[in-house]
Simulated scan of single mutants.
Amino acid sequence: MRYSIIFFLMFISFSFSQTKNEKEERIKPSEFPEIAQNYFNTISDKVKYLKFYKETDGMKKSYEVKFKYNKQHYSVEFDTIGNLEDIEIVIREKDIPKIVLHNISKHFDKNFEKARFIKIQKQFINTTQKTDKQFIDYILNKPNNKHTHFEIIAEIKTKKHHQLRELTFDKDGTFEKSRIVTSASYEHALY
């Protein structure tokens, strides 16, 4: 019983202090998972700055395509096989509904002395019956539909630390998780 409690506390500590140590490398479209690459063939003439990336974060590998469409910056992430993981759209603080922003702000006020939002994204995860391609098209056509999460990169200050953190909140502004963003991840995290 005693070892179970120690293991549980170590696990909780680790899960709250994970570090985002992503390494992103731009790749040719031909190096992207073929099934996912094909999703963008039909819209490549409608988007700006279509770029393909391979991303590693510790043991996890994924692929990401970034582009601008209808004046919004998108990031669409896939696993190594080409299955959709999530879609993210960069937004501004004023785009967050007031009650949700209030909930998010309460978390920052309670846990940090100071915080400055550097990047805010709304995140969509396909929990529908739509195929990955249908879901991507759906979000591109209706980017203001219900999303599942907010992801915020913020510069935070506590009594002990001054650091960059990535924090995830659900659609209602309830805190879910946080991890430190390393300097190696910082630059590409901002697009």
Rank of each mutant, 00 (worst) to 15 (best):
I6Q: 00
F14R: 07
K20F: 13
A36R: 01
E22Q: 12
S15P: 03
I5E: 05
K23N: 08
K23F: 04
P29G: 08
S17C: 12
M10C: 13
E25C: 11
N38I: 10
F7W: 05
F8I: 10
S17V: 06
M10N: 09
E24G: 01
Q18C: 11
I27C: 02
T19H: 00
I27T: 03
S13P: 04
K20R: 12
E22M: 06
F8Y: 05
K23I: 10
F11P: 03
L9N: 02
N38W: 07
F11C: 12
N21H: 09
P29Y: 09
S15R: 09
F14Q: 10
F11L: 13
R26G: 08
I12D: 03
N38K: 14
E31V: 12
P29K: 15
F8D: 00
E25K: 13
A36S: 07
S30V: 14
F7L: 14
E25M: 12
F32S: 00
E25F: 09
E31H: 14
P33S: 11
I12N: 04
N38Q: 13
K20L: 15
F11V: 13
P33A: 07
Q37V: 01
S15E: 05
R26M: 14
I12T: 11
A36N: 01
F16T: 11
S30A: 15
R26K: 15
A36V: 04
K20G: 02
E34S: 14
F7S: 06
I6S: 02
K28M: 15
N38V: 08
R26P: 06
E22S: 07
I5Y: 04
E24I: 01
K20P: 02
K28A: 15
A36P: 04
R26C: 06
E25D: 12
K23V: 08
S15H: 06
K20A: 08
S17Q: 11
S30K: 14
N21T: 05
N38D: 10
R26L: 13
I35D: 01
F8T: 08
T19E: 00
L9H: 00
K28I: 14
P33N: 11
P33I: 07
E22P: 03
F8C: 06
S13T: 12
N21S: 09
F11T: 10
K23E: 07
I5K: 06
E34A: 12
S17E: 08
F7M: 06
F11R: 03
S15F: 09
E25G: 04
F16H: 14
F11M: 12
E24W: 00
I12P: 04
Q37H: 04
K20Y: 09
S30I: 15
I6E: 02
N21P: 03
N38H: 11
Q37W: 00
I6N: 01
E25Q: 13
I35W: 00
